[in-house]
Design a protein around this nucleic acid. Sequence first.
DNA 1: TGGATCTTTGAATCATTCC
DNA 2: AGGAATGATTCAAAGATCC
Lengths: 376, 376
Amino acid sequence: MGVLEKVRTRSRAAAPAAPAELPLDQILMGDCIAAMRSLPAKSVDCIFADPPYNLQLGGDLNRPDGSHVDAVTDHWDKFDSLAVYDRFTREWLAEARRILKDDGTIWVIGSYHNIFKVGSAIQDLGFWILNDIIWRKANPMPNFKGTRFTNAHETLIWASSGEKAKYTFNYRSMKTLNDELQMRSDWEFPICGGQERLKKDGHKVHPTQKPEALLYRILLASTKPGDVVLDPFFGTGTTGAVAKRLGRHWIGIERELDYVDAAMERIAAALPLDESQLKTMQAPKAAPRVAFGQLVENGYLMPGAVLTDAKRKHVAVVGADGSLRCGDNAGSIHKLGAALQGAPSCNGWTYWHHEVDGKLKPIDTLRQTYLLATQP
Amino acid sequence: MGVLEKVRTRSRAAAPAAPAELPLDQILMGDCIAAMRSLPAKSVDCIFADPPYNLQLGGDLNRPDGSHVDAVTDHWDKFDSLAVYDRFTREWLAEARRILKDDGTIWVIGSYHNIFKVGSAIQDLGFWILNDIIWRKANPMPNFKGTRFTNAHETLIWASSGEKAKYTFNYRSMKTLNDELQMRSDWEFPICGGQERLKKDGHKVHPTQKPEALLYRILLASTKPGDVVLDPFFGTGTTGAVAKRLGRHWIGIERELDYVDAAMERIAAALPLDESQLKTMQAPKAAPRVAFGQLVENGYLMPGAVLTDAKRKHVAVVGADGSLRCGDNAGSIHKLGAALQGAPSCNGWTYWHHEVDGKLKPIDTLRQTYLLATQP
DNA sequence: TGGATCTTTGAATCATTCC
DNA sequence: AGGAATGATTCAAAGATCC
């Protein structure tokens, strides 16, 4: 096992403190599994992993014009057999599971060469798959030989620590990001190129550098500001750069010195966003619950007041105890709404309306008024 | 093992003859593995398999409007554990490998519930994966509870009988079908509905009927006229209907009588196409939709950037998730624009502007720039 | 008949808090 | 721990209905 070196970057994270024993905002240099063993159990909120794909490339590949394709031929992508790759996968995933908090999630990206082994191991280890996500490449490399379909996507697996585990999913942020439509499981991004692509002496520093846009969406979807994100295959530090921008802590593991150097320089140059820019569209959770009866007690609605649904199909009368009655039917605003619609459940706050100046308004607005008046 | 019944349909295939011992253009009724054992080794050119997904659904699911989701609760999708499912998968795949010709290929479709187990077994059994293909659903079911990303795709694995094996790939047909661009690994189709969806007494006959367009592309890509296509999970016979249309022989295996009945009727009604009719039928692509958040993710606008309307009446700041904030008001570019104007709706793309060289330009120009940069 | 509007539905591992 | 109460939540396509 290699010696671990902690490499501190100059980043002064704008994020709140986290458990002191974690090497926050640092790169651990060395073997991925050994380095993970040095981290405490249940200590990180999110793991993003871009493991070797085990590409098993044959000979060289040339384009139709004769030029040479700069493929992934690095030694770290070589495994003696599928079985060896499988064992390696299960080992690092087992460590990942130990380090992940109960309410944390893991992301792994791969291609058809390795993703089925990865996904199978994830399930066997007790992770619970939440989604598989397709990264559709806007500009993939064509299949020069015309022997197969253009390999135009990669697959990500997103999993929680177990079937019943809680996890962070910033639903509102994702919906906002996608123009008020639910974010789907297929994402389109260009491959990493242009200014973003790290180069040295005209050659790309890392053969499979991931686009920052991809990590941006991943971290925005599944972490909160101040969370700790671990990347056990850090490469040139895309995860660290985006985590820093988004006010998340990061920990990277990488054994190639060239990559570590490039990553440190890159992350040092990354600029964190202000607090105000980080404000996302999270549902305001903290608002205390208000019982409908409180509105009656406090005179926002009088007993005997008449409520109706938006289409004035049903009419109900408010009781002194905050119940609603409609003919022989009576119950809470939710129960009665559900019963009248024959639905299994109903949000009474948005279903029931009262008339103000001839217009119907949902009683939820009364709740907001009450909250504004009573909150400090 | 159940008794096998051969069910001969009235189809008189327009295709050339094939080995006599094969039950061509017939449905074998019975257990999939037992039926496969009755077929000779290395006898079929292509296998398409749509095995049970092992969905493991929890309780009922209702839509926000209270209506009930008609989920897959059929007995054939129930397995005692992941290990049992894994064993079942390896058993039928091993039989499939025995039956497949050396130069044949296999297709398997699945979702994240099962596809990793399938893919892992495919590799372990010595098949050689050629591509994984994404079926992007044009109209997937939303995630009603807002707990995950909309599950908007399914995955297909395409594999040959081994690493060095020859196989059929009709490259030209695929390129023609795709407007003279190489066919990519992500395919978009609507889910099966409308006239195509088989119904009985107003209810769908099969819960997971696949669209014929999907099988059309699969068979056109990977088989030749007269080839024999085996479908060990035949269901209501999509594979048979499309194979007949395309002049391929088919063999189906199915154990549910209701499905067999529906399949026979359907295939009998299917009309083989003339050669001339085999020409493409792809609709031209509409310009892809761009979400405002994509511009932020891809650095066309930074979080913190300032936008304003054409008259500089309102000023708003871009958030990290593509939201806009103006004082206490926040939301998508459309929502915030509407709110500030007191209008019911607003096209944020033309309403909001950013300053370039002292001049205001609508953010729609950024969208155009992004489209130009990312579209082929 | 045609356009506008309403209704239905699809392989789904789909909640959280309080008592 | 388990049951009950509360409350948050949907997109596109096809078909039906209405005017």
